[in-house]
Amino acid sequence: MMFERGIEIKTPAQIETMRAAGLVVAETLEVLRESAVAGVTTRELDAIAHEHIRSRGASSNFLGYHGFTGVICTSVNDEVVHGIPGSRVLRDGDIISIDCGAVVDGWHGDAATTVAIGDVPDEVLALMRVTEESMWRGIAAARLGGRVSDISHAIETTIVGAGDYGIVEGFTGHGIGSQMHQPPDVHNYGKPRRGAKLVKGLALAVEPMVTLGTSSTRILDDDWTAVTTDGSWAAHYEHTFTLTDNGAWVLTALDGGKTRLAELGVPYGGD
């Protein structure tokens, strides 16, 4: 069913299928966290992801998307998003942001995480913590009857309050359901109480991208990989979630987000 501004509202059964897709994504990212070590190429990580997604009876929503050649996006160090898996070898001290999606019976899941390879500087670990925390704070700010920009405002407030970081503005979170990218956009900054209303059956992918420097990016010659214009390193975290009568349900978290939401004092809306 379509809501205001072309926004797709899912039935409970469709949300359950999205949960199945989300669990495939969550499990795949867990496998990739263990596999992302020094000496491994991003192409090898892509093959691991492909095999795991297929083994769960799902398919990739990244592979072939507007010509994209990977099952995952692998963005290293100053690469913010949409890095193409290839021959790059991960080295001790790198960080890699891994974005992964899956489709089950036509319904999508989408999530991302950033992984430290070996020993990385404390300021980079702090960047990762702030980015992930801002994502969870954004989800925690969502309430039925609220507005999409309530999420955006919570993300921005968390990042700004943590230090001098760059909030990437050229890429946003998004609606998700029968397609990977749908309205509405979910910005990582903005004033609260604006944008589409948060209602049952709406699913959103929340994905802050934060840097140690600039907020501006440029696209490499591969027409996909976005890097920071000043070479500063970036982190990227993402989860797909929905709201039920009971609270938030994070469809791409193994526990549905129950643990982190409880830590933030937010009701858990999953089964």
Rank of each mutant, 00 (worst) to 15 (best):
V76C: 09
A38C: 04
E44H: 08
G57R: 03
C73F: 15
V80Q: 06
V71D: 09
H52A: 11
D78V: 09
V40T: 11
E34H: 15
R54W: 09
A47M: 14
I48Q: 04
F62E: 05
R54C: 04
T69A: 12
T42S: 11
V71Q: 02
N61A: 06
F68A: 08
T74L: 10
I53A: 00
T41L: 13
H66R: 15
T74H: 01
E51V: 14
R54K: 11
R54Y: 11
I72T: 01
E44P: 04
S60I: 10
D78P: 13
G67Q: 09
L32M: 03
H66F: 10
C73Y: 15
E44N: 04
G39K: 02
H66V: 14
T69P: 11
I53K: 00
R43C: 07
A47H: 10
R56D: 00
A47K: 14
G64P: 09
T74P: 03
S60P: 12
G67I: 12
E51A: 14
A38D: 05
V37L: 13
V37A: 11
R54T: 07
R33F: 14
V71P: 05
V37C: 13
I48W: 03
R43D: 15
T74M: 07
R43A: 13
L32W: 05
G67S: 08
V40S: 15
A36P: 08
T74F: 05
S59T: 10
E79S: 08
I48E: 05
D78Q: 12
S60N: 08
E44T: 12
